[in-house]
Design a protein around this nucleic acid. Structure first.
Length: 430
RNA sequence: GGAGAGGUGGCAGAGUGGUCGAAUGCACUCGCUUGGAAAGCGAGCAGGCGCGCAAGCGCCUCGGGAGUUCGAAUCUCCCCCUCUCCGCCA
């Protein structure tokens, strides 16, 4: 959610950011107009309330309260009418009132972009930041992971679709083991890097989902149980970021770094026809998510650290990757700046997203009311939140299968995982 | 799912219609005291919003919402949550 105070103080900054995202900045003027209207209505209401409070306490102080009440009644009745009217006006204008036009505009506006975000409308304008490793040269035509996995008997999409429909998978034997090894490995490495491991709920309330900015009119691709009022998390970013919602945290505990393994659930309705085969895009997938609560002045340094934490995992696994800075038009609603981490996928002959790391600045913290206090006597201020995958389990598994495939159909497992898998190669049955 | 108890400031815990945004204690901040500290003493110390250059002034908030009343933390209704016991269950 945008800060009304920022719109007032720096409307040009808001206009520029919106324009760069491809959003008509006209709404800024609308916000300013509604806000001016709101504040004058609020001032009128507060004047009437102050008058009423004065009269009421006068009655409370009087010798003969009922006599005083009787005497002041006409003025109080008139004030009550004024107040009721003013309240109704304020309610329709207030930025704090759910459903008011001003509130709606503030909630629908995406986060302000950082100045370092490159211009551009779509992913073609994204910028390469750096790359690591070289894609493996094959002496044979590399097969896609679903063929490799099915031949090895470790991936089963046919039975998955009988169980649940399309975009589900069944992992079996060494495949299931490899998946578990990855999750365990990612978590262990995160803890070694100072993250606190968290096992969060996979179902969260509407309010929690709303508080992290997932419930906008632009994105409702989530599975949910309307009866219970619960949503299945599309990412552990939601419970991790909202973990300290409503709290005022001591600045000395910053930065706070959390890591959680979870299943994630997405309808992916907008992605029909894209990545229909394999593990790339599933309704249910697993991921280790990394979340930082950072001091405002150091959140962009934190973003660099976060993307490096995620990238280090790929280096340890020997998988070639590149880091991409998303352009303005490709940067998500919550984010001020986003880096994507893309891993080389041999069968596709290109890099594919395996992690997305974002600095959401104070945008999520404003809704979730996550604050910090610098000194015992200082005022609370909003924290900055960051999130990124470290990493997506299915996509990493996919990359390992394709990268490690051999001419004889077996797959060589990266050494870093051997302590977790207990095997160094997956060989065809028989 | 059934029965009961309860939700007040960072914490504990008073407050059952009127100078209560809230006693008291602890924690915390500043000052005095001290060689230094502790203790002691004094002052301060919730959050949000609006007006104001500022000092400051005002409004709102005692789980959330609606109501009664000139006036609600206190009374009424609805909802949410927590705890205890019972049932069920991995």
């Amino acid at each position: 959610m945008l800060d009304i105070a920022t719109v007032r103080r720096e409307p040009d900054r808001v206009r520029r950011s919106s324009d760069r995202r491809g959003i008509d900045p006209a709404f800024v003027d609308e916000i300013l107009r509604l806000d001016a209207e709101y504040r004058s209505a609020l001032a009128a209401l507060e004047r009437a309330q102050a008058e009423k409070n004065r009269l009421s306490s006068e009655i409370g102080r009087a010798e003969d309260r009922s006599a005083a009440a009787a005497e002041l009644r006409p003025r109080l009745d008139a004030l009550a009418k004024t107040i009721a009217g003013a309240q109704a006006t304020v309610a329709t204008l207030s930025p704090d009132e759910a459903g008011s036009p001003l509130r709606a505009l503030l909630e629908e506006s995406p986060n302000l972009l950082d100045a370092s975000v490159p211009d551009g409308h779509d992913e073609s304008a994204n910028q390469l930041v750096r790359s690591w490793g070289t894609p493996r040269e094959f002496t044979f035509t590399p097969r896609p992971h679903w063929e490799i996995g099915e031949a090895l008997g470790i991936l089963d999409f046919e039975r998955a679709s009988r169980l649940s429909g399309s975009r589900f998978s069944v992992l079996r034997g060494a495949g299931a083991r490899l998946s578990r090894a990855l999750a365990q490995y990612f978590l262990d490495r995160a803890v070694q890097r100072g993250y606190v491991e968290v096992a969060p709920p996979y179902l969260v309330s509407r309010h929690t989902m709303w508080s992290t900015g997932q419930l906008t009119k632009f994105s409702d691709a989530m599975f949910r149980d309307a009866d219970a009022g619960l949503f299945m998390i599309p990412t552990a970013e939601v419970p991790l970021t909202a973990l300290h919602a409503g709290e005022i945290l001591d600045a000395s505990s910053f930065p706070r770094k959390y890591a959680a393994y979870s299943a994630c659930f997405r309808k992916e309705a907008g992605a029909a026809g894209k990545d229909t085969r394999g593990l790339m895009r599933q309704h249910q997938f697993e991921k280790v998510e990394l979340v930082w609560l950072a001091l405002p002045e150091s959140s962009f340094e934190a973003l660099e650290a976060l993307i490096n934490d995620a990238a280090a995992l790929l280096e340890e696994l020997g998988l070639a990757y590149r880091v991409i800075a998303l352009c303005a038009g490709d940067t998500g609603f919550n984010a001020a700046k986003t880096y994507d981490l893309e891993v080389w996928v041999p069968s596709a002959g290109t890099y594919r997203e395996i992690s997305s790391c974002s600095n959401c600045t104070d945008f999520q913290a404003r809704r979730a009311e996550i604050r910090l206090r610098r000194e015992p006597t200082s005022k609370p201020e909003l924290v900055h939140t960051l999130n990124g995958s470290g990493l997506a389990v299915g996509r990493t598994l996919l990359a390992i299968l394709e990268h490690g495939q051999q001419a004889d159909g077996s797959v060589v497992i990266p050494e870093a995982l051997h302590p977790y898998t207990g095997f160094s190669r997956i060989s065809p049955p028989g």
